[in-house]
């Protein structure tokens, strides 16, 4: 039953991203990639291999809409690989074990660090691979930062709404 919820999320996010968020543009820099929210909030104890494969499939679906080869698949798989390490470091720092990835469990500060770090890493890999030129590192960093902030706000908004509605 729980798994069905995540599978539904998967399809909803792919369609939302492909049909709505890919067409949003503010000031030439901001494109939110809300679909990473699925990778952020999959259960803590999910099998790591399954997490990697989910991220890869999610990325490929987004790529099919954007015509971008394996760009999103590469970025998504990258953060899916880093997620367990970042979670372990954060839980060691806080001295508690996380049961569920909710603000109530993690605290606002840890949640902000966790979500923003993963979103930023994802966006940075994405924009860096897309530009693929070292001379454009400044633009890439700027785009990653602005878009990450935008995605982050969206992610927190959706998360709070999701938690509250239960």
């Amino acid at each position: 039953m729980k798994n069905a919820k995540y599978i539904l999320w998967f399809f909803v996010l792919v369609l939302l991203q492909g049909l709505v968020f890919n067409r949003i543009l503010f000031w030439g820099y901001l494109n939110p990639y809300l679909y990473v929210i699925l990778l952020l909030f999959l259960p803590v104890r999910i099998d790591k291999a399954l997490l990697l494969i989910t991220a890869f499939c999610l990325g490929i679906c987004i790529d099919a809409f954007e015509n971008s080869g394996g760009l999103h698949a590469a970025a998504s798989t990258f953060i899916a690989f880093l997620r367990p390490f970042i979670l372990r470091i954060l839980s060691n720092r806080q001295g508690t074990e996380f049961n569920e990835l909710k603000i109530k469990d993690l605290g606002l500060r840890t949640m902000t660090i966790y979500a923003f770090l993963l979103i930023f890493l994802h966006h940075f890999v994405l924009f860096a691979l897309e530009a693929f030129k070292f001379s454009e590192i400044g633009t890439v960093l700027l785009r990653s930062l602005y878009s990450s902030l935008f995605t982050f706000v969206l992610v927190i908004f959706v998360h709070l709404w999701n938690v509250r509605s239960k």
């Binding site: 890869f56 790529d63 394996g70 698949a73 990258f78 691979l129």
Partner: peptide, 14 residues
């Protein structure tokens, strides 16, 4: 697994 998936994605991209 990570290297395999990443390699697939990058080769598609290029």
């Amino acid at each position: 697994l990570f290297i395999l998936l990443e390699g697939l994605a990058l080769s598609w991209m290029f």
